[in-house]
Amino acid sequence: MKRITGKLASCGVAAAMLLFPLVAMAAEAEGGMPQLRFGDQRLIGTTVWLVVMFGALYYIVSSYLLPPVGEVLADRAARIGADLTLARDTKSEADAAIRETRTATAEARAAAQAEVAASLAAANAEAQARAEAASARLAERIAAAEAGITASQTAAMAALRDVATETAVALVARIGVQADAGTIGTAVDHALAQRAA
């Protein structure tokens, strides 16, 4: 494509060089510029040498100077393409690594939450078992204390009955009345029963 464009450009330049004398002659016929008088032998020689030098310069530039520049541009384009491909591949790998990291983080979070839930359930179960054991021990102690209180109360009531009976017998005797201890004991039992109710 570049060679075709270069050939077309050189053909265009050659056509312009061929048409240039005709334009100049037309300008001279009208009394135009003195630089374009083709009747002067020096001007024709200068024009010929201009075409020869331009052709040589064009040949040197297109054959020796432009190919290395083209190679540099092609190498640069290839390097840029390789860098872009590498960047795309690296970006794809980074995106994949980010997805894997997010998946692993989500799995670890779910596992940690499950472990925390299991630990809480185990701790709650253990606490409930301890509370139930403590409640059972406390219930046993309360039952034992209540039995002790009931026994003490029964013993105290028995002792109170005896003391009340003896006191009543002594008071009645002080008054000077003779009473039967069994009758007084029955009256004391009756009074204690009413007070307990």
Results as ranks from 00 to 15, higher is better:
188 V>W: 00
12 G>W: 05
11 C>Q: 05
183 T>P: 02
168 A>F: 09
109 R>M: 14
135 S>A: 04
190 H>Q: 08
72 V>K: 11
25 M>P: 02
184 I>L: 12
50 L>M: 12
36 L>W: 12
135 S>D: 03
159 A>D: 07
156 A>T: 01
51 V>K: 04
169 V>W: 04
159 A>M: 10
172 V>G: 04
146 E>Y: 02
32 G>R: 08
121 A>E: 02
133 A>V: 01
79 R>W: 09
186 T>F: 02
52 V>W: 03
146 E>T: 05
13 V>T: 11
162 D>S: 15
107 E>L: 00
49 W>Q: 09
137 R>A: 06
71 E>Q: 15
117 A>D: 02
98 I>A: 13
91 K>V: 15
19 L>Y: 15
99 R>Q: 07
135 S>P: 00
162 D>H: 08
89 D>V: 13
98 I>T: 14
114 A>F: 07
93 E>A: 12
1 M>N: 13
134 A>H: 01
16 A>D: 08
7 K>Y: 08
150 T>D: 08
80 I>V: 12
25 M>V: 01
9 A>W: 08
150 T>G: 11
78 A>K: 06
57 L>Q: 02
197 A>F: 06
140 E>A: 07
151 A>N: 07
18 L>F: 03
167 T>Q: 11
127 A>D: 07
8 L>M: 14
100 E>I: 14
73 L>M: 11
40 D>F: 14
66 L>G: 07
105 T>V: 05
174 R>G: 10
67 P>E: 04
183 T>D: 15
38 F>C: 09
133 A>I: 01
95 D>N: 15
61 V>D: 12
114 A>K: 00
87 A>D: 15
105 T>R: 14
72 V>L: 13
123 A>W: 02
162 D>M: 08
86 L>Q: 01
90 T>S: 15
149 I>P: 00
189 D>S: 05
46 T>S: 05
4 I>G: 01
74 A>E: 02
79 R>C: 03
22 L>V: 15
151 A>D: 10
188 V>Q: 02
89 D>L: 13
111 A>P: 02
15 A>I: 14
11 C>F: 07
176 G>A: 04
39 G>S: 15
114 A>N: 01
128 Q>R: 06
130 R>P: 00
17 M>W: 14
60 I>T: 11
103 T>A: 15
109 R>H: 10
28 E>R: 10
133 A>D: 10
75 D>E: 10
32 G>N: 07
33 M>D: 01
194 Q>S: 04
69 V>L: 13
164 A>F: 11
5 T>R: 12
158 A>M: 10
132 E>M: 09
33 M>A: 12
79 R>Y: 00
43 L>W: 06
65 L>M: 14
101 T>C: 04
139 A>T: 03
115 E>F: 10
147 A>Y: 00
68 P>Y: 14
178 Q>L: 09
41 Q>P: 13
112 A>L: 11
119 S>I: 06
175 I>K: 03
48 V>H: 04
17 M>G: 08
44 I>Y: 11
175 I>Q: 14
2 K>E: 08
143 A>Y: 00
9 A>R: 05
